[in-house]
């Protein structure tokens, strides 16, 4: 789920950036530092949308660095247990398939794929129903439900299932091409 929230961070800035565009420097450094990172509490920080306030800088003794408390608005993405997501399949193997929804990687084990879908190895490994009408392969888009999440410092990993009503393939690249 995406959230638009306000976060705060203390930014250290090198004295050489002090000048007319200090604020810009601060902002660009903030973006560089936080965009694409992941925290357990908030999930992935996708993009900074605005700066709420920049507090008073505090000059560090000895180094000359200045610490600014910066409040910024950002879009974060955090998957939740039970959430339904649409994701793109990135790898298929006999244990299941990996899918990606933005920065989040989701693994769907073959136990969580409907029983009528069988793994077909070969050039393009895929899961296919016995009548061949539904096929999950790399780059398929699937709708899945997250049943477990694990949040590290740098990534969020999820376990998903498509063994439920209204879940499964929503567009099949094999069929369209």
């Amino acid at each position: 789920m995406f959230f638009h929230i306000v976060l705060e961070r203390n930014m250290q800035l090198h004295p050489r950036h002090f000048g007319r565009d200090l604020r810009d420097k601060l902002v660009s450094k903030l973006m560089k530092d936080v965009e694409g990172t992941c925290s357990g509490r908030h999930g992935f920080i996708v993009a900074i949308t605005g700066i709420e306030s920049v507090g008073k800088g505090l000059i560090r003794d000895g180094t000359g660095f200045v610490t600014f408390p910066v409040k910024y608005q950002c879009v974060v993405f955090r998957p939740f247990k039970g959430e339904i997501l649409e994701a793109v399949v990135s790898m298929v193997n006999k244990m299941g398939f990996f899918a990606e929804a933005g920065p989040v990687q989701i693994f769907v084990s073959n136990h969580l794929i409907p029983d009528d879908m069988e793994f077909q190895s070969g050039d393009v490994p895929n899961y296919t129903t016995s009548d061949g009408s539904v096929k999950i392969q790399k780059d398929s888009e699937v709708r899945l439900k997250i049943i477990g999440t694990r949040v590290d410092a740098t990534e969020i990993f999820c376990i998903g299932t498509i063994k439920d009503d209204f879940l499964g393939v929503i567009s099949d690249p094999g069929a369209t091409s």
């Binding site: 810009d24 902002v27 660009s28 973006m31 560089k32 965009e35 694409g36 990172t37 992941c38 996708v46 993009a47 900074i48 990135s90 990996f98 990606e100 933005g102 920065p103 989040v104 990687q105 740098t154 990534e155």
Partner: peptide, 26 residues
């Protein structure tokens, strides 16, 4: 500014980008 910094963001943390698998279009 954000746009301009994107490539540097990626280059500074390519690990994350690769960890997430493929280029990410947010």
């Amino acid at each position: 500014g954000m746009m301009a910094m994107h490539d540097t963001t990626w280059n500074s943390s390519p690990r994350m980008a690769v960890a997430a698998g493929l280029p990410i279009n947010w």
